[in-house]
Amino acid sequence: MAELTKESSHVAQEESQEPKPAKKPKPPKATVELGTPTVIVDNLHIVYKVYGAASDSQKGNAANALMRIVRRQGRPQMKEVHAVKGVSFVARHGEAIGIVGRNGSGKSTLLRAIAGLLPPHKGAVYTDGQPSLLGVNAALMKELTGERNIVLGCYAMGMSPGELRDKYDEIVDFSGIGEFVQFPMSTYSSGMGARLRFAISSAKTHDVLLIDEALATGDREFKKRSQKRIKQMRESAGTVFLVAHNLDVIEDTCSRVIWLHKGKIKMDGDPTEVLAAYNKA
C-alpha cells in the first residue's frame, strides 16, 4: 500500500498507478458486490472561517476592537482553517468506508462536504441522490420527552406522518429505552441518549449514509445491534461512511478504510492493512 505523503493528491494518484503489494489478490472481505459509483470526491478543498480564536495578546476588549476599526484591520479572531486539502476518491454501491485519523484531521469536515452541507473551496463532490448525515442530534431538544423528540427528529429528516407512524414503535424498540420514552431527554444517561439518537436517525433509509462517531457510546449489546443495522443498510444497496475513534468498530463494520492526516489522504484501502499502519503511526 502506498503511503501518500506528497503535497497534493494528484501526485499521490500518479504514484498509486504503479503496482503495489496491496493490489495483489486477497480473499474478499466484503460480501456485497460492488456497484456503480455513488460518491465521487474530486480534488476537494474545504476552507472555513472560525470566529473567536483570539491569541492572548489580542484579547477582545472594546478598546482593541475600536482600534482595529480605526486602523481598518480585520478581526484577528477570525481565522481560516484549511481543513481538507485535495482529497480524491470514488465510493461505490455496497461499500462501507471507515474514515480514521487524529482529531482535527478533517474527518467530520469531509463527511459534511459529502453531505453537501459545506461548500467546496476548490474541487467538487459528485453524488448519486442525497447523502445524509446521521446527525439528527442537532434537531433534538433535551428538555422534551423522548416521544416528542422521536416525532421531531423524524420530521427533521423529512419523513411524512405516515412514515412516522410506521417507524415509531420500531424506533422505541430499537433504542431499548422502554418507559423512559415519556421522560425528558435531559434525564437520560449518555448511553440512552446516544441509543435513541442512533435509533431515530437510522430509521430512515438512505442511499448514502454518513455516520459521525455515532457508535462511540452505548453498551456492548447495543453496539452489536447498531453494527448489524449498518450492515443491513449497506446491503440494501447503499454506501455507508463511518467516522469513529473506536478502531474495532471500523474493523468489524467497514470494507474499506481511508486514513486522513492533516486534511490529506495518507492511505486508502483494505481495513486490516490501513489500520495496522495507522496503529503503528
Binding site: 493490489k23 474478499p28 460492488l34 470526491v41
Partner: peptide, 9 residues
C-alpha cells in the same frame, strides 16, 4: 482484492 485501493485505481 475486491476493494479498490484508491480513486485512481
Amino acid at each position: 482484492m475486491s476493494q479498490p485501493d484508491s480513486a485512481v485505481a
